[in-house]
């Protein structure tokens, strides 16, 4: 398929979009911000017959809260997330993660639905969504289902999304006042970089810095995002101080299964899982103290 031969249609509503998606006998693909799609088209990897352009489908671009649940439309951009007072207050780890995506240009164009759908092991918003217990609403012309994000992503670039389905909603639980989160990323430089390792942490803390519940999710260290269950269970061992942080961080390398690639070796990635967890917990406690 040559780029010049590819068609593009721009549905004006969700129902029209779902109708287009249900058409069989042709190869089509959704395109929103295009920060992944355009690159892959250029590389020759994604050459559908038709692009279904949903960039301006504004009914899928929103951030709302209702009864301790936050609903995010898949076409919400990273910048929308960063500037949302609601998310700043009640989903701090997601705001942190969105800030670390690429740079301003990509944050303006790229959408959270796209970041999820691309299912890159290095996708920056994914670990944040994992620790926030995100669920996804997948809709086709005739069906609707809601599944946890862990079940959505199967491997690099692979998801359970069917040809005729699209992500129509992201649901996360609102953080309570005693919950706090943080996202840490190690890339080859500060901006415009793909994660070597990243980690999202979300803790429920008592007044005396005891952790009631904690979630830790690593990115870029396995085919999908990895929850660090052993580390999580150690969080509730006592007051979170420098020593406990070091001890938890020490075992993080056991939780991850990284590969070596052009960006880093597997050994370094293992070491960095520990380093980022240590740095993240330290900074998170500092942030808690300052609040």
């Amino acid at each position: 398929m040559l780029v010049s031969e590819i068609d593009m249609i721009t549905p004006s509503s969700l129902s029209e979009c779902l109708m287009q998606l249900s058409k069989e006998g042709r190869i089509h693909r959704l395109i929103a911000g295009g920060t992944d799609a355009a690159v892959r088209m250029k590389e020759g990897k994604w050459r559908p017959e038709i692009w279904i352009n949903i960039k301006n489908l504004n009914e899928l671009r929103y951030i709302q809260e209702s009864e301790d649940c936050i609903y995010i439309g898949p076409l919400t951009t990273h910048k929308d997330i960063i500037y949302s007072p609601l998310l700043q207050r009640k989903a701090d780890v997601l705001v942190d993660a969105a800030r670390e995506v690429g740079a301003t240009q990509m944050q303006n164009m790229g959408t959270i639905g796209g970041n999820i759908g691309t299912a890159s092991p290095a996708g920056d918003t994914l670990p944040a969504l994992y620790v926030l217990g995100a669920r996804l609403e997948l809709t086709s012309l005739s069906t609707k289902r809601i599944i946890p994000i862990e079940e959505f992503i199967l491997g690099p670039g692979r998801t359970v999304l069917k040809e005729n389905e699209m992500i129509t909603k992201i649901l996360i639980k609102s953080q309570k006042p005693n919950e706090i989160g943080i996202f840490q990323k190690l890339g080859p430089r500060k901006a415009q970089s793909i994660s070597i390792v990243n980690v999202a942490i979300s803790l429920t803390l008592d007044q005396d810095l005891k952790c009631r519940e904690g979630k830790i999710a690593f990115g870029s260290v396995a085919p999908t995002i990895i929850r660090a269950r052993k580390c999580e269970s150690m969080l509730s061992l006592g007051t979170i101080n420098d020593e406990l942080i070091r001890n938890i961080a020490k075992i993080a390398w056991k939780e991850v299964m990284p590969i070596s690639d052009g960006r880093a070796t597997a050994t370094y990635r293992r070491d960095m899982a520990s380093a980022l967890l240590e740095r993240g917990l330290y900074r998170l406690i500092r942030r808690w103290d300052n609040q």
Binding site: R189, K190, A191, G262
Partner: peptide
């Protein structure tokens, strides 16, 4: 070449 373009060729940005 293992380095293909500016995705993996890292030059300083204004933040560096």
């Amino acid at each position: 070449h293992k380095t293909r373009n500016f995705t993996d060729y890292i030059i300083p940005t204004i933040r560096e």
